[in-house]
């Protein structure tokens, strides 16, 4: 079981940003995407997660095996920590959220409303959601924003455990996660050439 990205080109706002991206992610591995701001890392991750169609090429991934986590954690501020996580657990049909709460060190906060959490705690809750999806491939967009050093280490541990169980992760990040075994992919060489395949619309119009 693996994830394959073949000749992928992605567009943001109708303009091609990355082209001819090829990589493969096997079970048990992590791949870290690097590149300057505005290069199209988020767009690439959204495309891989199936939220937007590719401009060209394809993403080969087993059906219903992608979990996506981005800057917004999808938390409801009037629900408690346990309610927020329990909701996602039942949406993905994985039952209990207790293990995920414990893994992200949130058990003590379980009855607190999400509105009363700090930014780092919210982030931890957002990442705990990945555990209750029960999905093998994680698409993570800057997962460590607003986490302190201890929490980053905690998350790296969770990630390592996920990989050990045969999971895989595709991560866009700038900081060192403490995962020396993860492969690195610099996306800068894949920047779409100016004269290259533009969005279908713009090609026709220029």
């Amino acid at each position: 079981m693996n994830l394959q990205v073949v000749d992928l080109a992605v567009a943001r706002g109708g303009v091609a940003v990355l082209a001819a991206v090829n990589f493969r992610l096997d079970a048990g591995r992590a791949l870290i995407l690097r590149g300057p701001n505005g290069l199209g890392k988020t767009t690439l991750l959204r495309t891989v997660a199936g939220l937007q169609p590719p401009l060209a090429g394809e993403v080969r991934v087993p059906e219903d095996q992608m979990a996506y986590a981005a800057h917004a954690d999808g938390l409801k501020s009037t629900l408690t920590v346990a309610e927020n996580l329990g909701f996602w657990a039942s949406v993905f049909g994985t039952g209990s959220a207790e293990a995920a709460l414990a893994a992200m060190n949130l058990t003590g906060l379980r009855d607190r409303r999400a509105a009363d959490l700090s930014a780092g705690q919210k982030r931890r809750l957002g990442l705990a959601r990945l555990l209750v999806t029960g999905r093998r491939f994680w698409c993570l967009d800057e997962p460590t924003v607003s986490l302190d050093t201890a929490s980053v280490a905690l998350f790296a541990g969770v990630l390592r455990a996920h990989l050990a169980e045969g999971g895989a992760a595709l991560i866009a990040t700038h900081i060192d996660l403490g995962l020396p075994e993860a492969a690195l992919l610099d996306l800068t060489p894949f920047r779409a050439p100016l004269s290259g395949p533009a969005g279908a619309f713009d090609e026709a119009f220029s």
Binding site: G50, L51, M66, A69, A72, L75
Partner: peptide, 14 residues
């Protein structure tokens, strides 16, 4: 749901 990102997550849910 759109603003807090839930909609993205629901779109990738089963």
């Amino acid at each position: 749901d759109f603003e807090d990102g839930s909609l993205d997550l629901l779109a990738t849910a089963p």
